[in-house]
Nucleic acid binder design. Structure first.
Ligand SMILES: [Mg+2]
Length: 237
DNA sequence: GCGACAG
DNA sequence: ATCTTGTCGC
């Protein structure tokens, strides 16, 4: 279709003009990811999410103490939306605002959980991988639905999981975080492996399907959005 | 040409 | 993701 606005990637590549270059860039960056076990147990686990308001993106982050589940800090940032909504490129829309939020934190998270995939992506470079690579912070992709890959429905009990395969590789795990609810799609983003990702997601799961850190960030995202609606200085109204 | 398709 | 109140099922 046609675009009335100039959409750009954080690397000044324009859509749809530079479509091929953008795809090459995702593939190139994915090769720089490190999918390996976490060195030491995390102390701080963060959850991130984003919301949209007009042509603005609100990124939010909630940090918890991994062992106790205590909320210790939150932050957010607002950015301009610079990329259209197309499957495979979510990172270009949410990434900037999420990165901005994490950079405003006083504490540096040991691992970050995302509302979107890591390497379970067409080019092996989903939202969690993108942010995890740019910030050099271990990241976990925890998508609500499938982007790529095939799998067998996991068992009905909480904690059940099955492999998510794509192009012959086991890129993720389909995890039943809550009984009676649809499973979640876990895949490592950067600086962590699949096993460690699943362990952390389950450890951060409370009574809901979505991980507590991400739920918290999602809640913050909406509170902020509500507070910003009708705010001329933010560009809407 | 017809589906699939993160949030 | 977003637009939105009540309503069906466990
Ligand atoms: Mg989200």
């Amino acid at each position: 279709m046609k675009y009335d606005k100039v959409y750009t990637t954080p690397l000044n590549l324009r859509w749809p003009r530079d479509k091929e270059k953008i795809l090459e860039e995702q593939a190139r960056l994915s090769r720089r990811l490190s999918i390996a076990p976490l060195k030491r147990a995390p102390q701080y686990v963060a959850g991130v999410d984003a919301a949209f308001l007009g042509d603005k993106v609100i990124g939010a982050v909630s940090v918890y103490i991994y062992e106790t589940g205590e909320l210790v800090e939150e932050a957010y940032s607002v950015k301009e939306v610079t990329f259209p909504n197309l499957p495979g490129f979510l990172a270009f829309r949410e990434g900037p605002a999420i990165i901005g939020a994490v950079e405003r934190l006083k504490v540096v998270p040991d691992v970050i959980i995302f509302d979107g995939p890591g390497i379970a992506h067409p080019k092996g470079f989903g939202l969690a991988s993108y942010v995890g690579l740019l910030l050099t912070i271990p990241s976990i992709g925890c998508a609500k639905t499938r982007l790529v890959g095939t799998y067998k429905e996991p068992g009905a009990r909480q904690g059940s999981h099955s492999a998510l395969k794509y192009e012959g590789e086991s890129v993720g795990s389909v995890v039943r975080t809550r009984e009676g609810a649809s499973p979640v799609f876990v895949s490592p983003g950067n600086l962590i492996d699949l096993k460690g990702s699943v362990d952390i997601v389950l450890k951060c799961t409370g009574k809901y399907r979505i991980t507590e850190p991400v739920r918290s960030a999602d809640a913050l995202t909406r509170k902020l959005k509500k507070a910003f609606e009708g705010d001329r200085s933010l560009g809407n109204a």
